[in-house]
Amino acid sequence: MEFWNFFWTTVAAFFTLATFSFLYKDNPLYKIAEHLVVGVSAGFFVMVLWHTTLVPNLIDRLADGRWIYLIPLVLGLMMWFRFSKKLSWMSRYPMAVYIGIGAGVAIPLEMATKVIRQLNGMMRPIDWENFFGAGWLDVTAGFSGILLFVGAIAGLIYFFFSKAHTGVFGGVAKFGLWILMLGFGASFGFTVMARISLLINRIQFLDNEWISNAFDSSNEHYTVMYPILFWLVILGLVAYIVYEIIAYRRRGPEETAGTT
């Protein structure tokens, strides 16, 4: 790894550790990381918007003589009237067009994908062979099909809003809520596992990309600056931890604990 590559890897490692420091409390290291990422991403977004949206979707098309794109241009310019107290009402028109078109496109799509396709999916035949006939092998598999159907119906009943959830209706709705909770529990465990893998990925970055390269003397570009950069970051973090310990002893836990 060349020196400047390692330098930027060290910067990334520093901000990784600075972000992890949030687990202790809100602190200056986290604030540096936070303000930098917010500022850089906002600036980056402007350039991304210019190069991936405005230029190909508007400017290039107008340059090709597709004059229909004057309409979004005018609507976009109307948004700027927000800065005028007298004419700020004009900015509501592009917003209305945007939301109206969005809803118009979304509603039939949602109806097709989240209603009718799901409805069609509920109309599946049960594998009756699991209950009788030649099967008799996997009754649970047969039950899971029935449970899915009954659970879907009960879940739908839970989302009835114009009827009080009392009596038998309330009981079915409660069963529906239980089914939902079972689903949420499974989803929670699955996602937590995915998050753990993200953490492992970051730890591997610190180990493989940063620490290993800091002391890899077989690297043809290796100089004494590699470990110096590494130890500078470590010393900075240790200095901050010492400062926090001293502050904790001087002011007591209530003022320094901050968020926890």
Binding site: T19, A33, E34, V37, V38, G39, V40, S41, A42, F44, F45
Partner: peptide, 10 residues
Amino acid sequence: LTIEQFAYVA
């Protein structure tokens, strides 16, 4: 704030 997801979170 910003459009980038985790910068927004921060």
